[in-house]
Nucleic acid binder design. Structure first.
Length: 658
DNA sequence: GTAGGGTTAG
């Protein structure tokens, strides 16, 4: 009997051959194979190699090697199971489940139709190719299963965003007498960590922790890393550290999971100190490590720290691949350096859709609508297909830059790409129309929407009413927001501002009363500025800073200078009723003004001042900052929750759209 | 034959 593919060992090395003839094992050679089966073409006979891929390649240099099955059928040969394994591996690697189905059909007609190891490999092929229905059907059909069968399907669900399906299999497998191993537990833990909310993660995760501990799996590096990741995703960093500390063997994945946990919580300092500790213990940071840290720098707007970590990437000589590069680009954009973001984009080794979307977002955040439109066109020209996020970024960019016609055009063009606009797209269009002052059109647009408008949709209209001082429509929009989301402080403040700007103080007081009654608390506004690696934070009317006397004095001096060139305080931005003079005093001590005065006192002349704020910059501060940039001849960059404002020589990059 | 960590919007 000849086998078409086989595996054999010679002098301790594993070889793969087309033929295996038992009595020839001691004098095996290429020539010998050919002489036993002379009808086999010469390129087949020379296929004694160490590398499985090379073997399949030589069977069919340009394809998968699948045609060897035709040969098997033609000659009525009995394939060795290694052939099936190799072919299935190849289909998995190439992500070609259709070819895998051909192998499946062949297996079903062979002696191995009930072989659990081969069927597990087949199951894994379907799972890795994302054919979960095929995998499930095969699983259900398998009369003999083992623990690997169960683990393979659990992993399939866990890796394809079906955590509940994965977790549900665990009690079933136990009740049928299959005992899990470390592979099963790490997949189950990954599934629990992907559940939609923290209590659910903790509920399932902690039980799996107990199970792992009882079986001694918790000291396995895979199980340990999944465990600490699970705790980190619940925000339980103490538990995550505990799991990490007791893990006997750590690797870069365990480190990365811990660093990512802190990074997600915005704890940049802790993420960075772990990064340094990791380096000191001779673990090599990976793209995962850098990606997490850049993400944390982006969310905290920490440009200096981000640059420092970027220098590490450069020093380590690694290429800037898309995954890490996208986060790096995002970090530069969100920390206020659009030039650096563009530079990273240009230098990316391979750009994917996320890279383009991130660049569009960068332009949107900086109010560069025309650049975003050009970027989108370039993306289409190279043949990339946009997705829903692409349009969201593009529409946001149009809205922020006041590109009304372009925004409407691109919104309509979404259907051409088979993308159904989601609620976020509708919000952006309401924003676009509203900012442009087309309040009636915005309202009509909302009424004609095919999906139910949410609080965000009405909130966008409310914001536009604030901008264009439309009290009636503003209060109508606010009512709708309060019905849908009664606990958000933002709309309450907006409505109160709308009333205040129309001098309707009684109505403003009513809003305040409503806030009090429904327990809605306004987030305290704060601004922060970094001077010489120290972050200084300010809240309105703050007097806790040691330099406060000098700061107040500085602002009074600046305030007098900007009034000389035309600044008029806009007191409608004060929430409460008080007389005009009191309101002006209140305005003077908004946190961003204190931060600016502090920065002017403590940074070199001519240097750029970067201020961050936890809520949107107030209209009066926005106006004042324009004048300040002219008077002191410096660039001031303010990052608020929405976007960046680059103040320079008396104007702002946002063109008063924000 | 089966396993863990990272990206864009809001």
């Amino acid at each position: 009997m000849s086998f078409i593919v086989s595996k054999f060992k010679c002098k301790g090395i594993t070889f793969f051959s087309l033929l295996h003839v038992t009595h020839y094992s001691s004098r095996f050679s290429t020539a010998a194979v050919a002489s036993i089966e002379p009808k086999i073409p010469p390129d087949f006979s020379s296929c004694i190699v160490q590398d499985k891929d090379l073997l399949l390649k030589s069977l069919n240099p340009s394809g998968t090697g699948l045609h060897v099955l035709d040969l098997v059928d033609e000659r009525s040969l009995e394939p060795h199971p290694t052939l099936y394994h190799l072919l299935l591996k190849k289909c998995t690697f190439l992500r070609k489940p259709k070819l895998g189905k051909i192998v499946h059909a062949h297996i079903s007609n062979s002696l191995f139709r009930g072989d659990v190891v081969i069927l597990n490999t087949l199951l894994n092929m379907y799972a890795r190719c994302g054919c979960l229905d095929d995998a499930r059907n095969l699983f259900d059909e398998m009369s003999v299963k083992d623990m690997v069968t169960w683990t393979t399907l659990i992993t399939a669900y866990s890796q394809h965003d079906r955590p509940l399906d994965a977790l549900l299999m665990f009690p079933q497998m136990l009740s049928l007498g299959f005992f899990p191993n470390e592979f099963t537990l790490s997949s189950l833990l990954k599934a629990s960590a992907a559940l939609p909310d923290t209590p659910q993660i903790y509920f399932h995760g902690a039980q799996l922790h107990g199970f792992s501990f009882k079986c001694g799996f918790h000291s396995n590096v895979y199980v340990g890393s999944s465990l600490l990741d699970m705790y980190a995703r619940c925000g339980c960093m103490d538990e995550a550290h505990f799991v990490f500390d007791v893990l006997p063997t750590k690797n870069e994945v365990s480190w990365n999971a811990l660093i990512a946990g802190h990074a997600r919580k915005g704890q940049l300092d802790r993420a960075l100190s772990l990064f340094l500790k990791m380096l000191r213990q001779d673990f090599q940071p990976t793209h995962f490590t850098f990606s997490s840290i850049f993400g944390a720098c982006a969310s905290t707007g920490s440009l200096e720290q981000g640059k420092w970590v970027h220098a590490h990437v450069i020093k380590s000589g690694g290429e800037i691949i898309a995954f890490m590069g996208n986060t790096l680009l995002h970090m530069y954009a969100k920390s206020g350096s659009i030039q650096d973001a563009k530079m990273i984009f240009d230098r990316l080794v391979k750009r994917d859709l996320v890279s383009w979307n991130s660049m569009l977002t960068a332009y949107a955040q900086h109010g560069l609508g025309k650049e975003a439109v050009q970027c989108f066109q370039k993306m289409l020209n190279i043949g990339l297909v946009p997705n829903d996020i692409t349009f969201l970024c593009l529409l946001t960019a149009c809205s922020r830059a006041g590109l009304l016609e372009e925004g409407q055009y691109y919104f309509k063009s979404m259907k051409r790409y088979n993308i159904e606009p989601g609620i976020s797209h509708y919000v952006t269009i309401v924003d676009l129309l509203g900012r442009a002052g087309l309040l009636n059109e915005a309202l009509r647009f909302i009424n004609e929407m095919p999906i139910q408008p949410t609080a965000a949709v009405w909130g966008a209209l409310l914001g536009a009413c604030r901008m264009h001082k439309n009290v009636e429509m503003g209060s109508f929009a606010a009512e709708r927001v309060f019905e849908l989301d009664p606990h958000d402080s933002g709309p309450h403040v907006l409505l109160s501002n709308i009333y205040a700007s129309g001098n309707r103080w009684r109505d403003a007081a009513k809003v305040r009363k409503l806030m009090k009654e429904s327990g809605v608390k306004k987030e305290p506004a704060c601004s922060w500025v970094e001077i010489q690696n120290t972050v200084h934070m300010f809240v309105a009317s703050d007097d806790s800073h040691p330099q406060m006397g000098a700061i107040y004095k500085k602002w009074e001096e600046i305030s007098a200078r900007i009034k000389e060139i035309g600044y008029v305080p806009d007191t409608s931005h004060v929430l409460f009723y008080m007389d005009e003079q009191e309101r002006e005093v209140k305005l003077q001590y908004h946190s961003e003004k204190l931060a600016l005065a502090f920065a002017l006192l403590n940074s070199p002349d001519g240097s750029t001042i970067r201020i961050k704020k936890n809520i949107r910059v107030c209209g009066d501060c926005h106006s004042a900052f324009k004048f300040v940039s002219k008077v002191v001849g410096r660039e001031i960059i303010v990052r608020d929750t929405n976007r960046f404002h680059h103040f320079y020589d008396g104007s702002c990059s946002c063109g008063n759209f924000w």
